[in-house]
Simulated scan of single mutants.
Amino acid sequence: MTLDTTPRTSRPTTAHANFGTCHDAHPPMFSVHAGIDGEDALVCAVAALQAAYETNAMALEKASEPLRSLLVATENSLEKGLALASAVLDGIERG
């Protein structure tokens, strides 16, 4: 994979994406709108990941096996996603 090092003339923005379909049981109830500033979208993503991480941590305190192992795996994935999204956001903010 080759990285594109060409300087951008504009800031990255979101593409349209749907969610909230209950596994395609009905049309999408929610969407990410196209054209939202990428940094603003990352701020929202970090907040959502942090909330999921904290919710998972509360469930982990109360869980026993085998659910506990699944929650630990989820914690690991959330921690990675949160670290990556936060690092990208920090990089954007530093320029």
Rank of each mutant, 00 (worst) to 15 (best):
E54A: 10
R68Q: 05
S10F: 02
V72S: 04
L70C: 09
F30L: 09
M58L: 15
T6E: 05
A48R: 08
P12F: 02
L60Y: 04
V46P: 07
V43N: 11
L71G: 01
D24Q: 07
L3N: 03
R68F: 00
L42G: 02
E61K: 15
P66S: 08
V72Y: 01
A51H: 08
E39Q: 10
N76S: 15
A63M: 04
A57F: 01
A73T: 14
A17Y: 09
G95A: 03
E79M: 08
L67N: 04
S10K: 06
N18W: 11
V32S: 04
A52F: 02
A83G: 07
V32D: 07
V46H: 08
E39V: 12
M58N: 11
G35V: 02
A52R: 12
P27M: 08
P7V: 07
S77M: 07
S77Y: 05
H23V: 03
G95T: 06
L49S: 04
H26T: 03
A87G: 11
L70G: 14
T9E: 07
T5V: 13
P12G: 02
R8T: 07
T21I: 00
T21S: 08
A73R: 12
H33P: 00
A17H: 08
A41R: 06
H16Y: 12
H26A: 03
L89N: 07
L3E: 10
M29R: 15
L71D: 01
P7Y: 06
P28E: 02
M1P: 12
R68C: 00
F19M: 00
E65S: 10
L49K: 03
A87F: 03
S64V: 12
A15N: 09
F19C: 01
F19G: 01
D24K: 06
K62R: 12
D90M: 13
D4G: 05
A85N: 04
A87V: 02
H23E: 05
H16V: 01
G20E: 06
T74G: 03
M29D: 12
G20Y: 02
C22P: 00
E93K: 15
E65V: 05
S86Y: 00
L42K: 04
E65R: 09
A34E: 14
A51R: 12
A57G: 01
K80I: 14
A59S: 07
E93I: 10
A47H: 12
T74E: 15
P66D: 05
H16M: 02
S64D: 15
R68K: 12
A25M: 05
A85S: 15
D37E: 08
T13Q: 13
V88D: 05
K80T: 14
L70E: 10
N56E: 07
N56Y: 07
L67W: 04
A87C: 05
A73D: 15
S10D: 11
R94L: 14
A85P: 03
E65F: 05
L49G: 07
S64G: 13
A34F: 02
L78N: 03
T14E: 04
M29A: 12
L60H: 04
E79G: 10
C44L: 14
G20V: 02
A83E: 10
C44Y: 10
I36Q: 14
H33Y: 06
A48H: 09
L49I: 06
C44V: 14
N76R: 14
A15V: 09
S31T: 02
A73Y: 11
T55N: 14
T2I: 14
A87N: 13
